[in-house]
């Protein structure tokens, strides 16, 4: 990794930590449960966007199932609690593990292939999971959803659990991207055939990145399940995946801070725009197309470029 790209990664980490510090300070000014709830859900999306960005932005592999893996994590913990009264300290890691293991299995099947296979397979997988969870009524209670024990009803406690976990995720991603593994992933993204010819086991590293991103989605899912005390198949709607992709692109793909920034921005905007009559998705989808077409680096890229422009 070159010095400048290392410097850039550190800048992005610092920017994202600064953003999280600001978020952590919000309860000093805002005490309304509702707005704290909105910020908590935004942080749920930060995990999904962060995981998806690791896979898409740094490893160049496009999955269309981040929301599905969040749903799997949530059902993992939800089903254990509902059917067997497993306590949360055991069901939460089990939920994350379940999402990651399924992710790893799927990754091993599909990551041997290049091209759009991953997108196709994950989309099909999302659809299979929707059908299976929706129709296995006796086990999953279908679209009625499962009620999950809320560990605490104290909003503030949940708020800081989410803030702390996001910070941990950012630090972990930073460490990963600085390491040799990060280097391999970016090499695969930039030129897969070239990377393979230099002896990088591309299938292994792609699968690893996919597994990690599904684990992050699973983490988001279990936290959310216990926060909202409700698990329902809607968590895995393809629309939710669309929202995650919008967040990453609008914030800025292939940067540490872009997805964090994008998740807060897009989710807060969609809450604010709700009253305007559901035009959010139209606006977001249009923005993604324009950004992908003309301005690859998203809002974070724009901000950085403006800041770095030398004085005339």
């Amino acid at each position: 990794m070159t010095r400048s790209s290392q410097q850039r990664l550190r800048d992005e980490l610092v920017a994202s930590l600064a953003l999280m510090a600001a978020v952590a300070a919000v309860p000093l000014a805002v005490t309304n449960d509702y707005w704290l709830g909105v910020l908590i859900v935004s942080m749920y999306f930060v995990f999904l966007a962060g995981g998806w960005n690791l896979l898409a932005g740094y490893a160049g592999q496009f999955s269309l199932a981040p929301a599905t893996f969040a749903m799997l994590g949530a059902y993992g913990t939800g089903l254990l609690a509902y059917h067997w009264q497993v306590p949360a300290w055991a069901s939460i890691p089990a939920g994350i593990l379940a999402a990651a293991l399924i992710g790893m299995t799927l990754g091993r099947i599909v990551m041997r292939l290049r091209g759009p296979y991953l997108a196709l397979t994950t989309l099909s997988f999302a659809e299979i999971m929707r059908i299976v969870i929706g129709n296995s009524y006796d086990f999953t209670r279908g679209d009625l959803g499962l009620s999950v024990p809320a560990l605490t009803n104290n909003r503030l406690v949940w708020y800081y659990v989410f803030v702390a976990t996001v910070v941990l995720m950012q630090l972990a991603l930073y460490a990963l991207l600085r390491s040799r593994a990060g280097l391999y992933l970016m090499a695969i993204r930039d030129d897969e055939i070239g990377a393979a010819s230099r002896g990088i086991n591309t299938a292994f590293w792609k699968t690893a990145a996919f597994t990690l991103s599904t684990a992050l989605a699973g983490l988001a899912g279990v936290l959310y399940a216990h926060f909202s005390s409700l698990v329902s198949p809607e968590l895995g709607l393809i629309l939710q995946t669309g929202l995650v992709i919008c967040m990453v692109f609008i914030g800025g793909i292939a940067s540490l801070v872009g997805p964090v920034f994008g998740a807060f921005l897009v989710y807060l905007a969609s809450e604010a725009l709700r009253e305007a009559g559901g035009v959010q998705l139209i606006v977001f989808a249009l923005l993604v197309i324009l950004i992908a077409r003309f301005f690859r680096e998203g809002l974070w890229g724009l901000a950085r470029r403006l800041l770095e422009r030398p004085a005339p």
Partner: peptide, 18 residues
């Protein structure tokens, strides 16, 4: 900046949402 496969996935997916 990114490969074309990815561009196509994202753009057509967003078009579908739109």
């Amino acid at each position: 900046g990114l490969m074309k496969d990815e561009y196509a996935v994202v753009v057509t997916f967003a078009l579908s949402l739109l």
